[in-house]
Design a protein around this nucleic acid. Structure first.
Lengths: 202, 202
DNA sequence: CGCGACGTTGATTTGCCTCAACGATTGTGG
DNA sequence: CCACAATCGTTGAGGCAAATCAACGTCGCG
């Protein structure tokens, strides 16, 4: 029995990919044949610490969070992912080693997954995908570089401001504690920042 | 007049590349024809904030540092680069926009440079290089991801310890203030950490 | 209705910074 | 070759940003 809406999600990822590289019909078909669709409910785990990450995941719908839990049980948010974003534990995926982090759905989500061995196959069969992943990685490097810079150069309040500027609607979609965790500050402190900003009529 | 030691540096970068991808003799020759060699003295700038970054730079010899200077004049170290590493301002290079940061030599250095338009040409002429840069970017993503995680989850002292574990000889090559700047702590505080570690017989 | 998750607010503590003074080292010009 | 300046690391004192702890109100949900 076919996955409901499979066509819709496949066409979504094809659109996403054709924005960056050109593919023939045959190449597109090969690509699609290597994918699978995965649905997650809120609080459902896509990856757990210790497991080997088998997939690169493209988010068709929903919202995911990857985070690390330290010895004292505090969790630290590494990444978020929403529609048209990719998410994985890259180190675990590339090296096929146990993951150091968890990935969990925050909303009902639909993902398209490609398995490691299928991705390897795809890259040899259709070299255009090398370019695609070069570009994806390139963007990731630039974004992470900026995040590192912000962590080094800005205060908690400034980082929050920068985040809001880049993703104005983030607050509608995420509990504050996860935003705080991504920023690297405590939820209590984020609340204080918001309190001050509110007074200043921002 | 030929650059002294050019052959040596070219063979160094070819070795570096053949570790990751296969190339024919012709492809290697094309690649080499797109490169240029650059020498820097200590304190000499490779890139200055505001300039557009024209090159990807491969370090044959020496040591470089990229850093951002904030409004208050504090500098923040983004990256180091030593032998067989690449360094650039990726955002400036990819988008051809003014750089937000500086890159400076800390030691006498020899770089191999490839210009943006030559790299673009190379990528279309020799698709194997797409794979090469995908792999380079992949490594960068993994390394930066770990750095972000360390910044979120570890104290200054712990980050220092992690750095020493990964690069035990880093202290021989870098002044402490640059290490502190990379770690995101003040030089004074790093000195205190070292003082405590020394007492504990570490 | 009652419980648990979340955000807020206030009090206290702490990790790290800034400022300042001081040796040690390096480099530079006389 | 030496004097001087400049740079660097160390050490101590005081201060601030942000964490922790705790109590409380709100909301959504079983």
């Amino acid at each position: 029995m076919p996955v409901p809406d499979q066509e819709k999600f496949f066409s979504q990822i094809i659109t996403h990919i054709l924005r960056r590289i050109d593919l023939t019909q045959e190449e597109q078909q090969l690509f699609l044949s290597l994918l699978s669709i995965r649905r997650l409910l809120p609080k459902q785990y896509l990856l757990q610490e210790g497991d080997v990450c088998k997939y690169e995941n493209f988010v068709c719908e929903g919202f995911l969070r990857s985070f690390y839990v330290d010895d004292q049980g505090n969790d630290h948010t590494l990444h978020f992912a929403m529609e048209d974003w990719w998410i994985t534990d890259l180190t675990s995926f590339v090296m096929q080693t146990p993951a150091s982090r968890n990935i969990v759905a925050l909303e009902p989500s639909v993902l398209i997954q490609i398995e490691k061995k299928n991705l390897d196959l795809l890259l040899t069969q259709v070299p255009a995908f090398e370019k695609f992943w070069r570009l994806i990685n390139e963007r990731a490097v630039m974004a992470q570089d900026q995040r590192i810079l912000d962590n080094l150069a800005l205060s908690g309040a400034e980082r929050y401001e920068a985040l809001l500027k880049k993703y104005p609607s983030i607050e509608q979609r995420l509990p504050q504690k996860h935003i705080a965790s991504w920023l690297g500050i405590s939820p209590v402190f984020l609340s204080q920042i918001r309190g001050k900003n509110a007074k200043k009529g921002k």
